[in-house]
Design a protein around this nucleic acid. Structure first.
Length: 574
RNA sequence: CGGGGCGUAGCGUAGUGGCUAGCGCGCCUGCUUUGGGAGCAGGAGACCGGGAGUUCGAAUCUCCCCGCCCCGACCA
């Protein structure tokens, strides 16, 4: 039983000045966490109970799915990460340190290498597969900008699993098992979430989905089609290419457009010249970039920006991407800033990547590749040739769903889980092979699956709070029932104590506010701030032999006979 | 790394060159109070982020450093 009289807890009346988002503010105020350094937090008793509840749910579901738990060190030697290039590729996000002999170590940001090597050390036959193992481990990433309390920390706890299969079909099967286990886990955690298609990013691999918990303070943006259920991270959102008939479009024609280096100024001139009707969407924006040292041109409708994240996600293999700067224009005199057009790009072997909205056959107004001139009737396929279609324009609410063509909505969310079909990248690099039934050596194919355990605590807090405090789902709350004794003499305290014991013996987790020196107001405020799902008040109503039972989330209150209290509480918790 | 902001007691804050750095919450002692963050009285607690400088005098002005928060870039 948690007794408030002795619990190591100090709640704060004011919001901490450095906390912005609800989860951070309330977890600090309610005495769950304390900041130690940027992105590094301690868990106090209430917080740690909550954290362990989340961890328990995750572990139970992993075990139930037949995955086996292991535990690696957080402190790791350099060598395995050298073999997969990540010692260098991971960059400054990797916490690196040296031991007294000067040998390189790191604090693990993720453990693909260790899992792969562990399996390699033990298994060598296809008969041992499939295998899925996991750990719940503290991870370290020296984030450029930790933020939002425990949502994005530099030290955090993650459950990471890895599956090992001989065949691609096997991988898909393991992937689906994890997916199902994740659904169960997040359902039990009481989280609202969407499963969205994602890009696999730095981890490599093919299929990848994210579990996103919608909330305003989330840092991921995703699209959702409310009609058909299509959901995707904006980076992975697909745009359908619809070719346009261009037979009736006249020949390319140059037009004088003095002093119109921007889309807005161009639209203005066009409308003045041709009697209106033009918008930014009729113009073609040619954005020049340097991709790994090579100049490329990206075509988007004039009313849209290029989304660099989407672009990079869809340009496979490109490590470094940046926009053209003035000095780049200076080096390339054929590219006239403000008047770039795709016609003639092939002459300079400039590759054109087009957003699918620049459909084959579509006609545009665009730059004429010389100052103060534009061209109209510039037709894709006739006047310029696109190297490939690539999703790269900013995504907007109301864009067309690639599945059912209805408008999509855009929402923000916290990423609470991510599942990948990694494939053979790590197994290849670390030479994890098994003998197949023909006695031939085969590279194993892997999946990787993560749940942010500490982040899930914050995500639940984000989704489950109100103005006055936290409102935990019962499985996660520090206690299921929070019993408050109020009054001057011993009776309510004795009754509350007895009731607490009864609740406990009927299997409930109980917190008892047995403080004699705190006023009722303080106890009520604390109970509401702490956020256990049921609050029972032993006080005034005792005169009628009753106690008051409150549901934290709904505010619903009722008085029940003392003898019926345990039953009433249990019933509300079902 | 770019832009903005902040750093004064455990927490929230006042104090823009001048006496012993002020207030609220929290904490300690005593009395009172006990259904919505109680009242009175007394008390403890601050190298004013650090260093250097300007000045008769610096929390306050200048420079450097450190730390933190927010936006952007970046990010399983």
């Amino acid at each position: 039983m948690l007794r408030m009289s002795t619990l190591f807890l100090r709640t704060l009346r004011d919001d901490p000045a450095d906390a912005e988002v609800a989860s951070h503010r309330l977890l600090v105020r309610a005495g769950y966490i304390r900041r130690i350094a940027a992105g590094v937090y301690s868990w106090l008793p209430l917080g740690y109970l909550t954290f362990r509840n989340v961890e328990r749910v995750v572990r139970e579901e992993m075990d139930a799915a037949g995955f086996q738990e292991v535990h690696f060190p957080a402190l790791l030697p350099r060598e395995p990460y050298e073999q997969t290039q990540r010692w260098s590729e991971y960059g400054p996000d990797l916490f690196r340190l040296k031991d007294r002999k000067g040998a390189d170590y790191l604090l693990g940001p993720t453990h693909e290498e260790m899992f792969t090597l562990m399996v390699k050390g033990e298994y060598s036959s296809y008969k041992d597969l499939p295998l899925s193992i996991y750990q719940i481990q503290t991870k370290y990433r020296d984030e450029p900008r930790p933020r939002s309390g425990i949502i994005r920390g530099r030290e955090f706890v993650m459950k990471d699993s890895y599956s090992f299969d001989l065949t691609d079909e096997g991988l898909i099967d393991s992937y689906n098992k994890h997916r199902a286990a994740y659904v169960k886990t997040f359902d039990r955690l009481g989280l609202k979430y969407n499963i969205v298609s994602a890009v696999s990013g730095a981890m490599g691999g093919s299929g990848s989905e994210e579990f996103l918990a919608p909330c305003e303070t989330g840092e991921d943006t995703y699209v959702l089609c409310e009609k058909c259920g299509y959901a995707a991270n904006v980076e992975a959102m697909k745009t359908v290419v619809v070719p346009v008939d261009s037979k009736d479009i006249g020949a390319l024609e140059e037009i004088d457009t003095p002093n119109t280096p921007t889309i807005d100024s161009l639209v203005e001139v066009l409308n003045a010249k041709f009697g209106g009707g033009f918008t930014g969407a009729d113009t073609l924006k040619n954005v020049l970039l340097i991709a790994d040292g090579k100049t490329i041109c990206v075509l988007v409708p004039g009313d849209r920006e290029v989304d660099l994240k989407r672009l990079q996600a869809n340009l496979p293999g490109v490590q470094e991407l940046r926009l053209f700067e003035d000095e780049d224009f200076a080096k390339n005199p054929h590219l006239v800033k403000g008047y770039v057009g795709p016609q003639g790009a092939s002459k300079h072997s400039l590759p054109l990547y087009a957003d699918p909205r620049i459909a084959p056959g579509s006609s545009w107004v665009t730059g004429a590749n010389k100052k103060n001139a534009h061209a109209r009737n510039v037709v894709n396929g006739r006047d310029f040739k696109v190297e490939s279609y690539i999703d790269c324009a900013e995504v907007r609410a109301g864009d067309t769903c690639p599945k059912c063509a209805n408008p999509v909505i855009i929402d923000r969310a916290i990423e609470i889980g991510h599942i990948f079909q990694l494939g053979r990248k790590y197994a290849q690099a670390l030479d994890l092979t098994v003998l197949d039934s023909d006695g031939k050596s085969q590279v194993v194919t892997m999946g990787s699956y993560g749940i942010g355990v500490s982040r899930a605590v914050a995500a639940i807090a984000e989704q489950s709070h109100d103005e006055i405090g936290l409102c935990w789902p019962q499985e996660i709350a520090p206690a299921q029932v929070h019993i408050v004794a109020t009054g001057k003499d011993d009776t309510p305290f004795d009754v509350a104590e007895k009731l607490a014991l009864q609740c406990e013996s009927s299997g409930l987790r109980v917190m008892l506010d047995d403080r004699r020196d705190a006023s009722p107001g303080v106890k009520f405020k604390d109970a509401e701030l702490i956020g256990n799902p049921i609050i029972v008040i032993v006080g005034k109503a005792l005169a009628d032999g009753k106690v008051e039972v409150r549901v934290r989330k709904t505010g619903e209150r009722s008085e029940v006979l003392l003898a019926d209290a345990v039953g009433a509480v249990s019933k509300l918790l079902v």
